[in-house]
Amino acid sequence: MMRYFFKFFLVIFSLVTATPMNTASAESRIITMSTTTSTEASGLLDYLLPEFYADTGITVRAIAKGTGAALRDGMDGNVDIVFVHDEEREKKFVEDGFGTKRYYVMYNDFVIVGPKNDPAKIHDAVDSAEAMRKIAKARTPFISRGDDSGTHAREKQLWVATGLPLNRHGEPIDGRGWYFAIGQGMGPALVMAGEKDGYLLSDRGTYLHYKYGRAQGYDPEVIYEGDDMLKNPYGVIPVNPERFSHVNNDLAETFARWLVSERGQEVIGSYQLHGHPLFFPDARKGQ
């Protein structure tokens, strides 16, 4: 009995050890990309990357994180390319020599999601800053991502635009009792806003997914949308090979150029989530 048992284990172990761990062989064309959770969670990557592979035979391994962590991976040379949405930090990333060039790829937009009955009456606000002021004034719950993500950065910009007194973390000073920084991804934040009957800033993709993509549905609605300040441009930046000699710059450049090519832009524009477009092509001429 024991004998067979050990033999069984031996077979399993040899099976496991026989298969190579890192399938990347010398000639395989693979790049590693750090990106934001939104591109992965929205399903765009699952739609986009196979198209890219079909055109070029290049595999893109995507690691989804918050924008801060994704940029950090680029700064440490752990990835070949970054694909994120925080224009300011991306520009600094290139200026500091970590990336070769930032390409405008697409944008999606943020929406302010809240309870149907709109307790803070933000629907008719003149701009997004006024909408946020109204939320603070009414002291209705506001769920902040609080995770150093691009969405979180946008929240902070909006709070600055309100002119309200803020603490050193960029949070409203009188936030106790209604301002909740949860330090989690978009999905959990949306769920929590639903539970707490609160407002939050969400990217449209994740919101659509929660609203129309699930059997169990999702009650909160888009209450305010459309302001310029809610636009969310995505940039792609190949990591600078002068800084990190090991990065696969050729393939990274290929991917970046494909994204901004007519073909890439068309693929991005054609992606729909539950019948609603999510990302809008944003490639600039001559870049």
Binding site: A41, G187, L190, T206
Partner: peptide, 20 residues
Amino acid sequence: NIKGFTRTMTTAMALEHNKG
């Protein structure tokens, strides 16, 4: 959590939760 490479049962579950 790279799809088809380093995505394990637990990281996939966390992602799915993130995606809702």
